[in-house]
Deep mutational scan, measured.
Amino acid sequence: RHRTTFSPVQLEQLESAFGRNQYPDIWARESLARDTGLSEARIQVWFQNRRAKQRK
């Protein structure tokens, strides 16, 4: 699998969602996937990585 590159618009949507809830449930992730055009799995990994980045 190649590395996913996120567009500025996608990142804005993801960061906005992260600001509201750092642990989105499956319904929120699937909604974000539809809105961004990404797969739910990529959304899930993005949130995992974003939480790890915040802990540093």
Rank of each mutant, 00 (worst) to 15 (best):
R1M: 15
R1C: 05
H2D: 13
R3D: 15
T4L: 12
T4V: 09
T4A: 09
T5K: 07
T5W: 06
T5Q: 10
T5D: 12
F6C: 06
S7K: 10
P8N: 11
V9G: 13
V9N: 01
V9Q: 13
Q10R: 04
Q10P: 03
L11R: 07
L11P: 00
E12S: 09
Q13S: 06
L14D: 00
E15V: 05
F18S: 00
F18Q: 03
F18W: 04
G19L: 08
G19C: 13
R20F: 04
R20A: 10
R20W: 04
R20Q: 11
R20C: 13
N21I: 04
Y23A: 05
Y23N: 06
P24C: 05
P24F: 04
P24E: 04
D25W: 02
D25T: 09
I26D: 14
W27Y: 11
W27K: 15
A28N: 03
R29S: 03
R29E: 03
E30D: 06
E30P: 00
E30W: 12
E30A: 13
S31L: 14
S31W: 03
S31E: 08
S31C: 15
S31K: 15
L32N: 00
A33R: 05
A33C: 08
A33Q: 03
R34V: 08
R34S: 06
D35C: 06
D35R: 11
D35Q: 08
T36E: 00
T36C: 07
T36L: 13
T36V: 11
G37M: 06
L38N: 02
L38D: 02
S39P: 09
E40T: 14
A41K: 14
A41F: 06
A41C: 11
R42L: 13
I43H: 00
I43Q: 00
Q44T: 06
V45M: 13
V45P: 01
V45F: 05
V45Y: 03
V45K: 06
Q48R: 12
Q48K: 15
Q48E: 12
N49R: 11
N49M: 07
R50I: 00
R50T: 04
R51P: 00
R51Y: 01
A52Y: 10
K53P: 07
R55H: 08
R55A: 10
R55C: 15
K56P: 07
K56A: 13
